[in-house]
Design a protein around this nucleic acid. Sequence first.
DNA 1: ACCTGAACACCGTTCAAGT
DNA 2: ACCTGAACACCGTTCAAGT
Lengths: 199, 199
Amino acid sequence: MPTPDRTSLDEIVAAARDILEREGLAAVTMQAVAKRVGVRAPSLYKRVDSRNALIELVAKTAVIELGDRIDATARVSADPHTELRQVARDLRAFAHENPRVYQLIFAGSDATRPDPQVLARASAPVLRVTDDLVGSENALEAARTITAWAHGFIGMELAGAFKLGGDIDNAFEFGIELLADALSARSSERRADRASNGS
Amino acid sequence: MPTPDRTSLDEIVAAARDILEREGLAAVTMQAVAKRVGVRAPSLYKRVDSRNALIELVAKTAVIELGDRIDATARVSADPHTELRQVARDLRAFAHENPRVYQLIFAGSDATRPDPQVLARASAPVLRVTDDLVGSENALEAARTITAWAHGFIGMELAGAFKLGGDIDNAFEFGIELLADALSARSSERRADRASNGS
DNA sequence: ACCTGAACACCGTTCAAGT
DNA sequence: ACCTGAACACCGTTCAAGT
């Protein structure tokens, strides 16, 4: 006679994520997760291939969540400049709310990193903005510059690498403005070039 | 009667670093390190407090090495603009040569991250450059923008996050130029402001 | 069909016993 | 003074036995 299920994959992934966020990756043991969902460790293997696979599921779930979030705010914004600012702030807000998941996603091993498809979806708004700003020839490079800056800034912030004092929020806004201005400047040059080329 | 030493702390740290770079952090077990230096695992505890302490030593050693390297090339360069470019390239070259150590340093846990003192030393050249470029009021923010961009770019590159094709070297140079130009522009504005203020 | 205890291999770490 | 085997607690994982 079949026993009713005592847990579910979703519950397991949620439990793992919660433990990760509260106590760190090392604390995400199969025993700890099992205990949280009211089951013994071996039972987890009915729904999950391995601990690594479970960690990957946590990462993947979070990436999708992040993608949705960026997508939602990117969709409603006005000009590229403010849209850019908004995407950067969204990313940072997510990182502040889910620091360990964020680090798992962007600084973890190969397996926990977003797969290209999801990544492309998440970075689409950035590409759209840079395309508007600097034109399609340099849109990819520009998008990479912005993404790299945001990712690097947030990573350092989470790592507590900004030890020299100063206002960190301020430095973030400074960076956004600097990059946005720089790209706008390129954009103007480009328009000027085009005009003088007559193309 | 005292036995002659069969290994040394330096040898142990070097062995651990080598294993880390070749096979990843998970492969750095006390047994693996011990085997490499010709000793049994328990003997390591004569020279190292714990596995974590050993990993920290690997990180610290590498940070000092990196600091020396940046310091050396930063010292000989000419104008701030090229110095900036050079520091960024040094950082990237080190990351390419020591990818796992780099990630350990900049994306690892609290314990493996550079302590503030060493970090300050390594970032001094950057601060000097930004001070030249944008003035002392915004030097820290500017330095953070540059450091964040470089760190983020390299981190993404090592993570294989640049899946959309395109020339990555090109994107790196694009980023440097964009940032350097943007800071130079600020610098000009600053000079103009000062002139019009009469201060 | 799901769950469990027992078992296995492998960790990090400790310690008494060797030289 | 350094090194070692044995032992302990704790992992991830497998599997036969329960319901």
